[in-house]
C-alpha cells in the first residue's frame, strides 16, 4: 500500500489540475455564448443574399460569369482546399476530426486525378501538415476566436482571382459545422464554382425578378453580389469553426474536471484507509508494549 504522504501529494496535484480544467471550462462556456451569438447574427445577411442571387440567377448566365463556371470534366484539374482548424488544443478530438476530414477529401480528390493546393488556417492544421511533409500553398494563424469579414476576404479574394482566371477549377473548405454546442461535425463545402442558391418558393426566380425595377441590370447586380456571397460563405465557415472549437473545448474540459473529481475521490479513500491502518498499527504496538512491561 502506498504511503499516506505520497497519497497526500497526489491528491493535491490532481486537485490543482481540476482547478485549472474547471476554470478553462468556465472561460470556454462564456466565450461560447458570444461565439454562438455571432453565428446566429450572420444568418440574416446570408439568407438575404442567397435569396436575391437565387431570384436573379438563370442557367444561361452561368457562362457569362467566371464564378459560376462549372468544371468541364468533374474531378480533373486543380482544386484549392482551405482547411480551418483551431490555434489551440485541449478540445478533445476537435482538430483531429477536422484533419481527418481534410485528409479524406484530399485522397478523394487526388484519386480522381485532381491536383490539390492546401490553404491552412489555424496552428493545429499547419503543425500536422508540416509533420506529414505535405507542401502547403498558404498558411495563417491570425484568425483566432473572433473572425472578421476582412479575414474571409483576405483568404477568398486571391482564390477568386485564380478561379476566375482559370488557374483553379474549384475551391472547397473543410470546417466544423456548428449545429449545436455538442454537435460539430467536420464538413467539406464547395464554395467555387458557386452553386446557385435555390430560388425562393413561388415561381422560378427569373419570373419574380422580372417584376422588379433592377438597377443597373440583373447581370450587373449579380456580378457585384456573387463575390459577396462567396466571401460570406468563407466568413460563416470561420465563425462556425470558432464557435465549434469553444463548444468542443468546453465539453473536453468538463470531462477532464469530472474525471479529476473521480480520481480525487478514489485517492482520498485510499488515503483514509492507509491512515486508519497506520493508527491501528500504532495502537497495537502501544498495547503490545504495555503488555510486555506488565509481564
Amino acid at each position: 500500500m502506498a504511503k499516506p504522504r505520497e497519497l497526500r501529494r497526489r491528491i493535491k496535484s490532481v486537485q490543482s489540475t481540476r482547478k485549472i480544467t474547471k476554470t478553462m471550462e468556465l472561460v470556454a462556456t462564456s466565450k461560447l455564448k458570444r461565439a454562438q451569438d455571432r453565428v446566429v447574427a450572420t444568418r440574416p445577411y446570408a439568407a438575404a443574399l442567397a435569396e436575391v442571387i437565387g431570384d436573379l440567377y438563370a442557367p444561361e448566365l452561368a457562362e457569362r460569369f467566371p464564378l459560376l463556371r462549372q468544371p468541364r470534366v468533374p474531378g480533373v484539374g486543380r482544386v484549392a482546399l482551405v482547411v480551418i482548424t483551431a490555434n489551440r488544443g485541449l478540445c478533445g478530438a476537435f482538430n483531429a476530426n477536422l484533419i481527418r476530414e481534410a485528409r479524406r477529401r484530399i485522397e478523394q480528390l487526388e484519386g480522381d486525378g485532381a491536383a490539390v493546393d492546401l490553404h491552412l488556417i489555424g496552428k493545429k492544421g499547419i503543425t500536422y501538415f508540416k509533420f506529414a511533409k505535405r507542401p502547403v500553398a498558404s498558411q495563417r494563424t491570425d484568425v483566432g476566436d473572433k473572425p472578421k469579414p476582412e479575414h474571409a476576404a483576405e483568404v477568398m479574394d486571391p482564390l477568386m482571382t485564380q478561379f476566375a482566371s482559370g488557374a483553379l477549377d474549384a475551391v472547397e473548405v473543410v470546417f466544423a459545422q456548428f449545429k449545436s454546442a455538442i454537435s460539430t461535425p467536420p464538413t467539406t463545402l464547395r464554395i467555387l464554382p458557386v452553386a446557385p442558391p435555390r430560388a425562393a418558393a413561388g415561381g422560378s426566380g427569373r419570373q419574380q425578378a422580372v417584376n422588379y425595377i433592377l438597377k443597373p441590370s440583373a447581370e450587373a447586380i449579380l456580378e457585384q453580389l456573387l463575390p459577396l456571397y462567396v466571401r460570406n460563405q468563407m466568413y460563416r465557415a470561420l465563425v462556425e469553426t470558432a464557435a465549434a472549437f469553444l463548444g468542443a473545448q468546453r465539453t473536453a474540459m468538463k470531462n477532464a474536471t469530472d474525471n479529476a473529481g473521480d480520481i480525487i475521490e478514489l485517492l482520498q479513500r485510499t488515503y483514509n484507509r492507509a491512515r486508519q491502518a497506520q493508527i491501528t498499527q500504532e495502537l497495537a504496538e502501544i498495547v503490545g508494549g504495555a503488555e510486555a512491561l506488565k509481564g
Partner: peptide, 24 residues
C-alpha cells in the same frame, strides 16, 4: 426596414422614409 451587415442585423424597425446611397 431592415439593415443587415455580414456580422449582424444592424437595424430592424419602422421608418417613414429611407434615403440610401445607390451605386449612381
Amino acid at each position: 426596414v431592415t439593415v443587415v451587415s455580414p456580422v449582424q442585423a444592424v437595424f430592424d424597425g419602422v421608418a417613414d422614409a429611407v434615403v440610401a446611397p445607390a451605386y449612381d
